[in-house]
Design a protein around this nucleic acid. Sequence first.
DNA 1: AAAAAATGTGAACATTGTTCAACAAATACC
DNA 2: GGTATTTGTTGAACAATGTTCACATTTTTT
Lengths: 204, 204
Amino acid sequence: MTTKREANRADLRNRLIDAAESQIKKHGLKGLKARDVTTEAGCALGALYNAVEDLDQLVMLVNSRTLASLGDVLQETASALTEPSDIMQALGKAYVEFALNNPKVWSAIFFHRLPEGAEAPDWHKQEHAILIDQLIEPLSEMRPDLSPQMLRLRAGTLFSAVHGVVQLSLHGRFVGAPAEILAAEVKALIDAMSRGIHLANVSE
Amino acid sequence: MTTKREANRADLRNRLIDAAESQIKKHGLKGLKARDVTTEAGCALGALYNAVEDLDQLVMLVNSRTLASLGDVLQETASALTEPSDIMQALGKAYVEFALNNPKVWSAIFFHRLPEGAEAPDWHKQEHAILIDQLIEPLSEMRPDLSPQMLRLRAGTLFSAVHGVVQLSLHGRFVGAPAEILAAEVKALIDAMSRGIHLANVSE
DNA sequence: AAAAAATGTGAACATTGTTCAACAAATACC
DNA sequence: GGTATTTGTTGAACAATGTTCACATTTTTT
């Protein structure tokens, strides 16, 4: 068996991701330090660069996990309902709750930037799709006229709009801090968009 | 006269802000380095810490400028129109164009984070209001039922929604890169919201 | 013009990401 | 099973960068 190395390798990698996630949860993305991560993971500083490319990749691996777990939440939320507008409202609510309950790892998804010029690898870019996957079905019921391609585009726009409200609220720009106000504003936004979407059906 | 010092001080401060802005425009927020800034401003490294608190404050000063210039654009945009929905569409379009034409300084406004625990000073937080000031009047025409306080809140939500679409598009999440597509999606979003807002008038 | 105050200077320091030469462990081969 | 090779680990060293500070220079005050 040539597998003990692979097992060790995967093990360390996981410990590093665990440690990075824990550090981000404690100190935020900016508080993630190579030395703290390797100490918590129980390995030497240099080992990090054997297990992963660099700190940026480690952040992307943490973000992968967060996206997957957020994706699960959204999937379960949507699968419990049938009315398109109910699904949208429930997804918005679930998204707000996830962000409020996991603010640091949630922020990390959207605040992580690669160095000037670098591009995120495809495997990671594609993972962001789970943010809109659950929106497509209800949206297609509201807008049967749109092509699949257009549906994806519009679903991205819908998600981005809700996301913008949550993000600027959590980072204290306009929408008041209290959680209930944020939830209510997101509800109002989805409400307005749902009505607008229905109408657009006959006139766009 | 005790004014030569003040003049010099203000002069250096401005040169530093100029240099920081130029560096951000060239290399983005992450590419802003104390040494590059002081070299471009023509002063010693340490002088930076006499003129401003630290690099974070320098970024906030650059962001102030950007917000002011963006505020001017929005103000002029709104003042040329009278129909509420026209104003909203025009503001959205102007915002998209500003972001596309000044991506790095525009990003810096929203991506700058202070160290764990620190809060932006009030003078800077309040400057963000210019992003929604122009929205309040058209919105109050669409929703005469809302209190001034509620209008501000809702205007913040509207702005945040549009902002979210622009941001996630520029940072390559969902909405396709081409500028026309982004503009069209923002238009569709504002359309949907305007219709929804009108309806909400009678039922919310 | 001399004394006092404020400011500019750049070397030094602290923190951090990353690399690398030496060492250790795991695996392959006989 | 034992040896050679390949792979992984270590932590010291390096490079980049924000910040401070003792000293020099400039400006203000008297």
